[in-house]
Design a protein around this nucleic acid. Sequence first.
DNA 1: GGAGGCCATGTTATCGCTCACATGGCGCGG
DNA 2: CCGCGCCATGTGAGCGATAACATGGCCTCC
Lengths: 356, 356
Amino acid sequence: MTAAGEGAPGRPTDTEAAAGRTSARPPSMADVAQLAGVSHQTVSRVVNDHPSVLPATRERVLAAIARLGYRRNDAARALVTRRSGVLGVLTPGGTAYGPTSTFLALEDAAREAGYVLVVGTLRLPHEDSTAAALNRFLGLGVEGIAVIAPTEQVLRVVGEIDAPVPVVMLSSATRLPDRRLVGGVAVAQREGAAAATRHLLAGGASEVLHVAGPQDWFDAQERVRGWREACQAAGVSVPAPVETGWSARDGYQVGLRLVREGLPPAVFAANDQLALGLMHAWREHGVRVPDDVLLVGFDDEPGAAHYAPPLTTVRQDFAGLGAAAMRYLAEALEGRPTRRRALAAELVVRSSSVRG
Amino acid sequence: MTAAGEGAPGRPTDTEAAAGRTSARPPSMADVAQLAGVSHQTVSRVVNDHPSVLPATRERVLAAIARLGYRRNDAARALVTRRSGVLGVLTPGGTAYGPTSTFLALEDAAREAGYVLVVGTLRLPHEDSTAAALNRFLGLGVEGIAVIAPTEQVLRVVGEIDAPVPVVMLSSATRLPDRRLVGGVAVAQREGAAAATRHLLAGGASEVLHVAGPQDWFDAQERVRGWREACQAAGVSVPAPVETGWSARDGYQVGLRLVREGLPPAVFAANDQLALGLMHAWREHGVRVPDDVLLVGFDDEPGAAHYAPPLTTVRQDFAGLGAAAMRYLAEALEGRPTRRRALAAELVVRSSSVRG
DNA sequence: GGAGGCCATGTTATCGCTCACATGGCGCGG
DNA sequence: CCGCGCCATGTGAGCGATAACATGGCCTCC
């Protein structure tokens, strides 16, 4: 190649090998090849660990790479291989413990598998932000998409966009659209909710009230279902669930209302923050947990063991969820048959549900 | 079941039965151009909103785009423009409220500015995972990097890698390496800590103990500093800070020890989780907050208002932090002079620090 | 009314990489 | 001792976009 012909813009005058760093243009494979005295293809082989490269050659190339500070241009690579090594993640835009831990677990599993994650958070109105994020992902060439904690709206949009890549839902979407590549991994929310409810009933409660999360979240729906089934199985009456948000503030308000309108013997809260808010409201009015009312939460967030009193709750295997989602995507990408997976939820008994 | 025969990885056999979609090759600009009867360049102009395209032509192109389901290939675009539209974010791998909210704020600001975020979480050992993440980012062609809640280790690695793109630290790194493009935005941690300490002293405490976070975190260091300065300014003695982790469990253990070894009149905890753990330990031993000991936390995480008792704490402007970091990067990318920014921290007074 | 000049559009050359194939050595079996 | 085949390496052709320049048409201004 013309080492220093004319008419070449951005020709790195005499690329400062030292710390100078002209910042003209990052070194390319061709630069490395020239310095090492081999062809660009050989450099490519070294970089990609191709077996048939003589050790001596490899050494020379590696030295040149180190000297130049060469780094492979993944955009160029992606252009020809059609593999970006990037996965998109759609996550609800909040600091809630569940989605956050799930995301972290997913990131872990993805890195393990050699992928990086681009993230899009969902804001209201869901529909628009979801579509926008999805389109950005696709333009970027993501190889797969994971959706954390989906809601009805997200599911609808994903269906509409009809992404040409595998999509995995990390949660309990019970009514998956019948699109080819949309599947899901889920924690057994229903079973967890049922276990919590049974635990309360076994503790002597004649009835269990459910303070439910937003019903457009599949997770919230499933918890309601598990609770209801457990109540029915035990032959106790099923009071209308109280639908609210996910926050401690929501729980606090419900708590106040219950104080006014009459307390049930036991409450199953759809998550720990709700339980925290309930306890706060009750404490203010002299209602004691567990003496006056039994309480169970859901999630086992980091503080739950230190609430007043320590909260009985349902622990979800978020790490397992992330790993399972990654496996799911990996299999879909390889064209292997993928099937739904469910992970166990575990009841963690603390003081809030045990009298004595 | 190997979908394709041997030797042909990714060959699109018609595994894709269901929704039609041969998945042969996504449509390119050339395809659109042909269908619309124009040149690929005109398609490019339409896609990029170039002004000089006749409305009629634009219509035709848009129709072709819609018909084909065309989507621009960002890898190809990035290859020639050297602009990926991607920013890398290094974040600690935990569910802590601070880093999580900061990340969300950053994502918000980034999207606003037309960027997407790729994320790398830091795991132990920091050094290796940091370097690995940084290299992946650079290979991907990120245009800038944001580091959330940096520690000494992260700072060191970032300095070593000498990233050829702007790097911004979202926190209180007081000793920035003197590299050209490494800068930071920070919440005024020190002032917040000082305000918390003064508040406790004003509330009648003769002395304030500080339960400090891990001292390799710059945030933790700054909070110690603010606390110490406030103590000195008030002329009260400065007890040795108790260094521990960030979790409620850590706080719980410190709380037990304080019960055994003697309680101070007031405690300033380095974050809300620590405060939560302290209160738990104390509650178990009949120590009342605020009657027996005054307490202030840091972060104002979502549950803080509902702890027992509601926690006085220092609220940080995470949204502002994310936005400021984004502005910082944007300015660096445009070559404009960038300067450090600091955001205010605000004391939120609740029951845990007010007797009566 | 001819010379600019600004549209709207087309043509060609890369960007940095991988893929498919070509090419020379060299070992080895017949 | 020839030819086959397998290394190790090189050559050339794109991948799908943007950039830079080229090209006619039409309008304007002196």
